[in-house]
Design a binder for these strands. Structure first.
Length: 462
RNA sequence: GGCUGAAUGGCAGAGUGGCUAUGCACCGGAUUGCAAAUCCGUUUACCUCGGUUCGACUCCGGGUUCAGCCUCCA
């Protein structure tokens, strides 16, 4: 019985799909004008874990995550680079896919691009105007009349009066009400545009998601997700548009992931304190970054630091070390009690931190066994790999994972390392401990840790 | 100013009205030529002030601090 925290009701609710056995899920993706940062990575990973969990529960999930490929920032960046908008967006979409692959994020069922759904947006705006919920201003813009939607503010927990009282909403004389937001922006010189009944122009950001969700999931669906900062105004507006147009509930459950912070401050472009995924991947593996993100609850704030990534590496080393030497036999069976515990944690609003305790318990049990190749060890290792996969982790060959981390210092090749290990073992056979220890120290300097066990010497990056 | 949310041991991070989270680090032991890895054991908590209760880190109320949203933002 899955319970998820619904931002709309501000409490955990039992998850009941609209159609038994099926789930429609929409997540707001990114605006492609730059490389993905750790905050984007968190969104990808959080909803990837949810996607995997829903599937593990036997549900047939249609997962839609859009790509916003037309927007002020994209246009500005393309102009700055002196390149066409689509060349810029294609490049960053490719980069995004590379990053996701490195983080072992599954591709959503559909990844619609806003520019391919303009017709649906125009149609939706048309419906809103027909219903008197929107109006075309004399400057060619179309606005949504916020005051005509009774439930406005419910998702973000704010009142229209409070918002109006705020001084931070810029006054625009084309709007009937300062809170009204734009559905269609009239064309400006040099900008991409499409024809519409209100003249050439381009869609506002909010209408994109309403239109793409409708065309791929229908007028109603189960889960709508995104970053915490999208709750207002983006999701509030999406909800207002879709519910006003269709006269029915839009998404039943709204989920928002917490932020990544740096020095206890939100990671963002404007604060210029962000780290891109590819930057971090120079020093850490995608799996280490993923572990760091999955290690804490998806709604809590997550403080980024290299100390945290180091801790993720150490934790992952413990898990992989327990798998070392075990047989990778998918038919070895599953120890159900661990799976049950794992599911119980995951069913509690994706309590991944608690679920991890199950993985570490499994690692401890495997370590206690006499032989990693015993039937029981194989079964437990099989269970550990299966549960790891539920979180998108532990699928690599243990030895490769332990040796594959990017070196933090030094840059010895594996053949250099093997040669030194061979020389050291010769010295050890001669009980030349001085020479043996010198070599071990030398490797330690280069970030290589040696382990002599069972008559064999293995190594890993530390 | 309005509205959310959070405060747990050296660090990270779950959770519970009375019972070991977990990982890393630390300490003692086993193992090892010495290490590493592993195993066994130990130590270190619940922002503050009041209240409810036989008993509160856990529930209620006040306070303090921090973060987020109210403007593009995952």
């Amino acid at each position: 019985m899955l319970q998820i925290y619904n931002s709309l009701s501000r409490q955990k609710e039992l998850f009941t799909p609209r159609e038994p056995g099926k789930v429609g899920m929409y997540v707001c993706g990114i605006t492609v004008y730059d490389y993905c940062h750790i905050g984007h990575a968190r969104m990808f990973i959080v909803f990837d874990v949810l996607y995997r969990h829903l599937q593990a529960l036997g549900l047939d999930v249609t997962y839609v995550r859009n790509v916003t490929d037309v927007d002020d920032k994209i246009i500005a960046r393309a102009a700055q680079n002196n390149e066409p908008v689509d060349v810029l967006t294609d490049r960053f979409i490719d980069a995004m896919i590379e990053d996701e692959t490195a983080l072992n994020v599954l591709r959503p069922t559909h990844e619609p691009r806003a520019t391919a759904a303009i017709d649906q947006m125009v149609a939706l705006i048309d419906v809103l105007i027909e219903k008197g919920m929107a109006y075309a201003a004399d400057n060619g813009d179309v606005y949504y009349s916020v005051s005509k939607f009774a439930g406005y503010g419910k998702l973000s927990g704010r009142k229209l009066e409070d918002m109006r009282a705020g001084e931070r909403v810029a006054v625009d004389h084309h709007k009937h009400d300062p809170m009204d937001f734009v559905l269609w922006k009239s064309v400006k010189p040099g900008e991409p545009s499409w024809p519409s009944p209100w003249g050439e122009g381009r869609p506002g950001w909010h209408i994109e998601c309403s239109a793409m969700a409708k065309s791929l999931l229908g007028e109603q669906f189960d889960i709508h997700g995104g970053g915490m900062d999208l709750q207002f105004p983006h999701h509030e507006n999406e909800r207002a548009q879709s519910e006003a147009a269709h006269d029915k509930t839009f998404a039943n459950y709204w989920m928002h992931n917490g932020f990544v912070r740096v020095d206890e401050e939100k990671m963002s472009k404007s604060l210029d304190n962000f780290f891109t995924v590819r930057e971090v991947l120079k020093e850490y593996t995608g799996e280490e970054l993923r572990f760091f993100i999955v290690n804490s609850h998806y709604r809590s704030a997550l403080n980024y630091s290299t100390a945290q990534l180091d801790a993720a590496r150490a934790a992952l080393q413990r898990l992989y070390t327990s798998l070392r030497g075990t047989l990778n036999n998918a038919n070895a069976g599953i120890e159900q009690s661990y799976v049950d515990r794992f599911n119980e944690s995951m069913n509690d609003d994706l309590n991944t931190a608690e679920a991890f305790a199950v993985l570490f318990d499994l690692a401890g049990e495997i370590n206690k066994l006499d032989s990693p190749e015993s039937a029981q060890a194989t079964k437990l290792a099989n269970t550990l790999r299966a549960l790891g996969d539920r979180l998108g982790l532990l699928q690599a060959d243990p030895e490769a994972a332990l040796q594959g981390a990017p070196a933090k210092s030094g840059d010895l090749s594996s053949s250099d390392i093997d040669a030194l290990i061979a020389e050291r073992n010769t010295a050890r056979a001669e009980k030349n401990w001085q020479r043996s220890d010198d070599i071990r120290d030398q490797l330690a300097q280069a970030g290589i840790t040696l382990e002599d066990a069972g008559g064999k010497t293995t190594w890993r990056r530390s």
